[in-house]
Write a protein that binds this DNA or RNA. Structure first.
Lengths: 232, 232
DNA sequence: TCCCGAACTTGACATGGTGTCAATCTCGCG
DNA sequence: CGCGAGATTGACACCATGTCAAGTTCGGGA
């Protein structure tokens, strides 16, 4: 193949995402991996290599193992989707209903896009301990995201009394899971629109204080209220 | 294969679960499979054979393939759990809150017990088309269960206006999914008690008409009301 | 009593995937 | 020129699934 020089591995790590010439082999492998993963399933390394136009053995010049490649593909897929940008509406929401609406829309798009990758990662983590750690990281990030939403709801006095910030965050995280999305959209054939709509509604009815109840400023029975329990 | 006579397979199928002498090899294999599956993961046929005290090749005298064994294990696991009996409180509930409470408790117990089996089946169905059909069957059964609950809520006039029986049924089905249970109980370390409590609460807040609203007998704005839309 | 057939055994083998190793090729650059 | 990075071909070990063949054990029926 081409490549050569002090280019390639070191460069790939340092390359900014703004330079997509993709002449880099490592990058080509990752893209091939994503392509193979996205269509169908079986996921054989030989297939990815063929797709990338290199020999199977060359994969091992760039990745220690199947899992390392999978992790790289997952990360690339994340970057490609642009989580940061997609999350902007969620971060910028200024009231509870629009926050939850933004979250529902984000979740719908994100899960649709990341579904094949998460699927594979989930399958791999069962058999491969090396996949467990990255998986945990992602889970922690999702959990933190859910908790951040719950914390803002709580700050606004919008969080229903039955929740703590922690439990509400976990529930938000669970409802945002690819698995729930898969169950409804893939297995039960829901349309994305219906999923988004239902998720929004359910987030609202699950989390939000019902309008008729105590005002956010009023500290009622126990130690509930505005600053419920922001961290342990 | 060998198979022949009216013995063996036929006998295994016809044997009542009340006779546990376990002299039947097929049954021993299934039990070994469940045991291996329940602890840890890797799931190698050789291991199951060793656990069952027979040679690896003897597995093929009883099961055509890995998938056939897996299906048998899943079915056995179901019988062992006693779904019918465990579902009794759900079937016998006479009001909406206790129905949803019974459902939440059933789901918690069932998912905890069936988790390893479902895990394996889900992994297998990705690569093995033979697993897809049994999976679909189970999904259809779960969906029907969810829909039955939704229909009863609707009959009682307890189902919130935003739902049809179909969509509510699917939502119940999705919240009953092993995957949601896994996310919360396994990955996020929720206790079973907390899961059961939250699930019950969330089923209620998601599905039930809020107390202040229109009475069940009153047919309000559109064509909603008691007999919402029992089938398409 | 003998023997048939069912169930199981051992052992070998094909296939296909992962991961490793060694030898070779090809460039660009110092 | 020759080094060295990246890539190639080819071979190999290992393991899991699935198949095949031949032999063993044992119970029950003719």
């Amino acid at each position: 193949m081409v490549r050569a020089m002090a280019t390639s591995k070191r460069v790939a790590a340092a390359r900014e995402p703004t330079a997509p010439p993709a002449t880099d082999t490592r990058q080509r492998i990752i893209q091939a991996g994503l392509a193979v993963l996205t269509r169908g399933e079986p996921f054989s390394l030989g297939e990815i290599a063929r797709e990338a136009g290199i020999s199977r053995q060359a994969l091992y010049l760039h990745f220690d193992s199947r899992v390392a490649l999978a992790v790289a593909v997952a990360q690339y897929s994340d970057e490609l989707f642009g989580v940061e940008q997609a999350l902007a509406p969620v971060r910028e929401a200024t009231d509870a209903p629009s926050l939850l609406r933004a979250q529902a829309r984000f979740v719908t798009k994100y899960n649709e896009r990341l579904y094949p990758v998460v699927r594979m990662a989930d399958a791999l983590r069962q058999t491969d301990p090396d996949m467990a750690a990255p998986w945990e990281d992602r889970l922690a990030a999702r959990r933190a995201g859910g908790r951040a939403i719950a914390a803002r709801l709580d700050q606004w006095g919008a969080l229903s009394d039955e929740w703590t910030v922690e439990t509400a965050g976990d529930w938000i995280c669970a409802l945002a899971s690819v698995k729930l999305w898969e169950e409804l959209v893939i297995d039960l054939r829901w349309s994305k629109e219906r999923f988004a709509r239902s998720l929004e509604q359910q987030l609202c009815s699950a989390l939000l204080r019902t309008p008729g109840e105590e005002a956010p400023t009023a500290v009622a029975h126990s130690a509930k209220g505005t600053g419920k329990k922001s961290r342990a």
